[in-house]
Amino acid sequence: MKNKMLFIILLSLISIITFAQEDTTAVAETKDKPVRSPFESGYLIDAQTTVIPNPNTLEMVIQHKFGTIENGRSDLWGIYAPANIRMGLNYVPVRNFQIGAGITKTKMATDVNAKWTILEQTRENTIPVAVALYGVMAIDGRNISAFETGQVREAYSGPVGSFKFPDRLSYFSQLIVGRKFTDWLSLQAGVSFTHYNAVGVLYDHDKVGVHFNGRIKVSPQGSVIFNYDAPLKIKEISEQLEWTNHPEPSFTFGYEISTSTHAFQIYAGNAGSFLPQENMMWNQRSISKDNFAIGFTITRLWGF
């Protein structure tokens, strides 16, 4: 069944690529230009948009999520609770292709990522949607003793002495389809596949998820933004008999302010990590008021 699913995913990707090449030719003939700024940044909260900055642009991103708001004013609604941080750099070597790397505080995870916008929505609707592929590989940077002494049972439950480097690796791949409907409304939908090389015996190695996000522009520089991620319960790829540790879906909403070189997003949501595979595999915080945490994303662009 797993092989069949991989075959279907591969087939879909090949057909998308073929479709992309055909349509690129069509664009060249009609000179239909891509729509302007379907999103203001490549980041939408902790998700990705189909937008990639201009070639030879370096992007620095600072992401921060405070603790949950459940303790109220005692820790100033989570602002003085333990926080999660990710700092990363992205570079655009050629048009519509971006590579990046970052480090997240939780698990001291180092990630490398790549995004390819295969199709851009055009002004005359020759291409009605934007399509992008996004992939992340992360390396769990925790001390080896944490795995082998059973401190992190969800991540590893093998015998002492057999933990290897590949057991630290996790992967996330996503297909994103987006459309700028009007000057003030852009929406995206996505499907993703998450894989962890090593997990505890009570957990699954693989998860398929769906994603939905968007922005509602309320002023030339301000937008209301939201993101929803849902890991799916697919029995065929589960290694468990019951859904005891199934991750929770996450919902985040916020506000974005953007300028020529910056995007600043402030938000509240129930997902604790910045790495998509972490949120798709491990998020145990349900969508309820007490599980929400305040966070922000800041991006800065430099053109070369």
Partner: peptide
């Protein structure tokens, strides 16, 4: 209209 939006993003600050 486009100019106004782009002006707000790139020039206004």
């Amino acid at each position: 209209k486009v100019g106004k939006l782009l002006y707000a993003k790139h020039c206004k600050s």
